[in-house]
Computed example of a mutant assay.
Amino acid sequence: MGRIFTWEEVAEHKVPQTTSFITVFEYLARELAEKEPIRDILVCGSMLRGEHNIRSDVDGLVTYRQEEEGEAIAALQEATIFANSLYVPLELIPVSIGEARLSLHDIKPAFANHLLWAEVTGIIKGHPLGLFRFDHMTTITADTRNYLKNKLGRLLKDWAAFPIMSEKEQCRALRKVVETPLRVARKVLETRGFNVHIHGKKRLVSSYCEMFGGELTKMLVRLQDVDQEYTNDLYDHVFNPNQTGYQTCIEKLKTAVPTVCQFVRLNLQMFVEPITNDLPPFPIS
């Protein structure tokens, strides 16, 4: 199991050596752990068991201070670039400290138990799992909350990996970015009893804005404008193609990523449960 390489990768020797995984681990301990916004680092997987091979990756968990999110993501990007220079896939899940404590994260119980096992030998910095709170919700509210947690986690992970994505991968990720605001609005409206299945895009946007107003409305409208601007630019380039101009359009979409992450986060905060003492700080396997 593991990666499937292209012929080009094989022919050009773009395949990691088994020792490269240890080099990446050492980089995380030497460089990433020294970054001030990074609070905890925990890696897991086959490398800890000595079972990794050239098809493996390095995955794990990183917690950071939300007020320094940009710096934390930049540090993860640097680590990703370094690992990629050795052809090692680095898959670290970024979670802010606040989201860990309020259970607004995307860590599933199965993976949490995987991380729990890895604590024996995989901790590089701190003690991340002590931060995490897990809860249980049901019904449509639970579904929406889980969707928002998953979406935020995926967006942050993609954001951190942007420097090493191919053009095709970036376009796939950017599609998720521009689709997210409306999908989030739809899911949240559904929890308020709004029948999202019989109304179009404009009605969804206007209904969301009427219901929530303020910063959320401004963000949603701005993000929908970004989406529409890209559509308009796309039509222009279909008839008058210009590679440099089109690349500028793609770069504009990338600038929306932080706003989309914040939009998801603010919606997610509507679903924070009161903190009680009857929930274990970490799931027991």
Rank of each mutant, 00 (worst) to 15 (best):
I93D: 02
A33C: 06
E9F: 01
A173R: 02
V221T: 14
Y230H: 13
A185N: 12
V24S: 01
A161V: 03
Q262E: 14
K252G: 08
T231G: 05
F162E: 15
F194A: 06
A11G: 09
K187P: 11
K168P: 10
V196K: 13
G60M: 00
I284V: 11
F82G: 09
V260R: 05
F271V: 08
D225K: 13
H136E: 05
G245V: 08
L279N: 15
I93P: 03
D158V: 04
F25C: 09
A75P: 07
R154D: 12
M137P: 15
N84I: 00
T191W: 03
K218M: 02
I4P: 13
Q17Y: 09
S46D: 02
R172Q: 11
L115T: 15
P109N: 06
E91C: 14
V120R: 13
D233R: 10
P258I: 08
I41F: 05
G245T: 09
L76K: 08
F82C: 03
T248F: 01
D40L: 02
L42D: 12
L234K: 13
G60N: 00
R186G: 15
Y147V: 06
E167F: 10
F132W: 04
V221D: 07
H237A: 02
L86H: 05
F21K: 00
R133I: 04
K187E: 15
D158S: 12
K168Q: 12
E190P: 11
R183T: 15
M270A: 08
E169F: 05
E51Q: 11
E78A: 05
N53K: 00
P163T: 02
G153H: 09
H197N: 15
D59L: 06
T80A: 07
R55E: 10
N267M: 00
F25P: 08
K149G: 08
R265V: 03
E31H: 11
F271S: 10
G60C: 01
R49I: 07
E119I: 10
E215R: 11
V178A: 02
M211I: 04
N240P: 07
F271R: 07
A161T: 10
